[in-house]
Amino acid sequence: MENPEKALSEIRLMMERSSRFLSLSGISGILAGLYALIGAGLLYFWLQEISLESGHSTQGLIWRVMILAIVVLVLAVGTAGWMSRRRSRKNSLKFWAPASRKFMRALFLPVISGGVFALALVHVNQYNLIAAVTLIFYGLGLVSASHFTMNEIKHLGIGQLIIGLLAAFFPSFGLLLWALGFGVLHIVYGGLMYYRYER
């Protein structure tokens, strides 16, 4: 390394690549937001239906909602994984690297805890805080994972956290706030990331 500029740029590249996962796809954020909005819309429609046919059991609805939640989650995570993998391949980076593993560990520890917590709420028939719990744990996951990726993810996480806390105080707006966090905020940030890094 005779040339000092070349040495410095090599140093910067290695520091960044080894500590940050930068292939996160913005478009997959937009798509995740759309899946969430469709899911929330469908749930809203089901709830309307139930309140019309009074005396109907809610047990069937709970199962339908859980399946819907799993489908939305799998679609969102799958799209994000697939598109980010494609981006890393395009930039000839490894998708499965130390930084991406740290990113996923930081994100999924709170997210899985939040998911299990939500299941526990279903188990004890306490439905009104589920929107808040999923938003809060997801927000915490994003804030902790933001140390290993672009800084914008921290702001997205704080946004989810604030919306989640609001949903805890106003559970009757739970579904609306959930759609705002998982839907609208994802679309806004996904668009922003796409605009900044992928064009």
Binding site: M1, M14, M15, S18, S19, P98
Partner: peptide
């Protein structure tokens, strides 16, 4: 730090608390 591999190793260790052998190989 004349050698590029040693320079890369040291850069990685400046940015990360710890790094393992296979991690270097991946980078």
């Amino acid at each position: 730090f004349e050698n590029v591999i040693r320079l890369q190793v040291m850069s990685i260790l400046m940015a990360n608390e710890r790094f393992d052998f296979n991690g270097f190989k991946e980078m």
